[in-house]
Design a protein around this nucleic acid. Structure first.
Length: 517
RNA sequence: GGCCCCGUCGUCUAGCCUGGUCUAGGACACCGGCCUUUCACGCCGAUAACACGGGUUCAAAUCCCGUCGGGGUCACCA
């Protein structure tokens, strides 16, 4: 039975790199008919764990990454919060202590620091002298009489080596003597990550620890803890981390300013920002940017696209498969085909997957899922009037592939719902205020007034007829007409726009435009 | 700096284990063209990579050694 886990800290947001790690864990568990669980690493005491966790759980739900055990769903090994599992850690610490695998240490942080600096000055690797180690009661009393407080440290082996069989990296060797006597329990009795993680992984019967590469060098001490406690070891798989756009540095939320200098990243960010602003969303870079999964949900990316992009970031099925449904991912995922080198996050490629996924989405779905965006932007009231459905369907049909994300409907369709128009100044200047344009538009208005029925075919015929009569080309007038009726230089097919708008609105808008020349 | 990991087009990758069919394949981006009322889509095309140096071998992207480069990690954070 395969059991994997992802262990987020409640930080208030879901990082794109974290999701990739979680996805691989989830995929691996599902592939082998096992369980995937969520454990909350909140040993670092902080307030408001629930509030900081909510966006993370929400992100997973949105992506369809479901967990069999963990917060909100419970499970046979509950609780799944490390802050609530301290009693178990205490038992483990006692066992480590009594087995001689750990010791009480009475050194102050400053004393340790002094030793460390001395080692550095002599250019030799630092190894704690264990001068303030207390293994007998007498030693403890002596130190405590000095007013000292004890932490519990691992008594790491100082000879021999460890060979890890990593499922992604193969055999990796470490010298025990390079490992530090890490603290596993603070003076106040709270336990630290490594201890907690190892104990929980065992308690939860985790069979495969799949995590990012930065944990590879933590593995020896974790294996030491596990072995000292008599645990059977899980299999380890260390994934390459997700790197910054165009670099090999680890992707980090904090370096957003740097990423914004990347053209593609900036483009994706700007696009999302425009949509978010139209909906009146909070868009501070701290909570809203392309490194955070929430960004994609808010803007209207499709979860399947994110998953598809992410699964191919460090894994491939073969030499040409680009598109996989979640079911196909589950059916084909394997750790053997995970890449070893870090992979740069490429927002443009994610965009391409989004484009493709959106094209696959049935029209009805698009209508149902885009409507809320119009409502949030205040372009359609809630509940939506009944004529909106058919109208929106026509609009989305006409817009076709131009709608890349659900939120694009706001940008592409606002003029269908908004009066008066806000003209794109540049376009207005170029196409309507240019010499002769107003005169031509006035004549065209008269023609349009007589078009019946006012539909794509009728409109097209009328326009063709008009330009022929005037001895001009269609390009000479159609741009002016577009700007006058839609306010923009770009958009869906013009005849479609005109038909959806209806004759009355079109004529009225042409008059308005003419009045502003 | 110590330890560990990694190194194929700008980017994601296939190929590497089991040398030859690799004059290195696909995708995204970029550039050019077609389509076209704008934009987008679509289609066609072009440019573009085995980090370097030594071996081993009839033959190396693939095996070995070294160099260089990049990154991760060295907490009473997770």
């Amino acid at each position: 039975m395969v059991r994997t886990r992802f262990a987020p800290s409640p930080t208030g947001y879901l990082h794109i790199g974290g999701v990739r790690t979680a996805l691989f864990n989830w995929l691996f568990a599902r592939r082998h008919g096992g369980q995937f669980l969520l454990r909350i690493d909140d040993t670092d005491a902080q307030r408001n764990v629930e509030a900081a966790l909510a966006p993370i759980l929400h992100g997973f739900r949105w992506l369809g990454i479901d967990w069999d055990e963990g917060p909100e769903v419970g499970g046979p090994y509950a609780p799944y919060y490390q802050s609530q599992r301290q009693a178990g850690y205490q038992i483990a610490v006692d066992k480590l202590l009594s087995g001689g695998f750990a010791y009480r240490d009475y050194a102050t942080p400053e004393e340790i620091q002094t030793e460390r600096e001395a080692a550095q000055a002599e250019k030799r690797p630092f190894l704690y002298s264990r001068r303030w180690m207390a293994e007998t009661l007498a030693e403890r009393v002596a130190f405590e009489d000095q007013g000292r407080q004890a932490v519990v440290r691992l008594k790491m082996p100082r000879e021999g080596k460890l060979v890890i069989d990593d499922l992604v990296r193969g055999q990796v060797e470490f010298e025990w003597a390079r490992e530090q006597d890490h603290v596993v329990q603070r003076a106040d009795g709270t336990c630290l990550y490594h201890l907690a993680s190892v104990v929980d992984d065992f308690d939860f019967q985790i069979t495969h620890v799949i995590r990012a590469e930065e944990h590879l060098s933590n593995t020896p001490r974790q294996i030491f803890i596990a072995q000292s406690l008599g645990y059977s070891l899980p299999a380890y798989a260390h994934l390459p981390y997700v790197a910054e756009p165009g670099s090999k540095n680890k992707l980090s939320k904090r370096k957003l300013d740097k990423y914004l200098k990347n053209r593609d990243f900036a483009l994706v960010n700007e696009h999302g920002l425009a949509i978010a602003r139209a909906m009146g969303l909070e868009t501070s870079a701290d909570t809203f940017n392309p490194v955070i999964v929430d960004f994609y949900e808010q803007v209207g990316y499709l979860p399947e696209a994110i998953l598809n992009y992410l699964v191919l970031l460090g894994w491939s099925l073969d030499d040409k498969t680009e598109f996989l449904t979640p079911a196909q991912m589950v059916a084909n995922f394997s750790l053997e085909r995970v890449t070893k080198a870090p992979a740069s996050f490429d927002p443009k490629k994610l965009w391409a997957f989004q484009d493709h996924t959106m094209q696959q989405l049935p029209l009805k779905q698009k209508v149902a899922r885009m409507l809320p965006y119009l409502q949030r932007a205040g372009l359609v009231s809630t509940p939506a009037p009944c004529e909106v459905g058919p109208k929106l369907t026509r609009i989305i049909e006409a817009a076709g592939d131009r709608l890349k994300v659900l939120g694009d409907i706001i940008v592409y369709a606002d003029f269908f719902f908004q009066d008066p128009l806000r003209y794109d100044e540049k376009a207005f200047e170029k196409n309507i205020r240019k010499a002769g344009a107003a005169e031509l538009l006035t004549k065209l208005r008269a023609v349009l007034a007589g078009v019946e029925p006012f539909d794509v075919a009728g409109l097209e015929a009328a326009l063709q007829n008009f330009v022929a009569g005037q001895g001009i080309k269609i390009g000479d007038i159609i741009h002016a007409l577009r700007v006058a009726t839609t306010g923009k230089a770009v958009g869906p097919g013009l005849y479609d726009c005109l038909e959806i708008l209806g004759k009355e609105t079109c004529l009225k808008r042409i008059d308005q435009a003419l009045a502003q020349v």
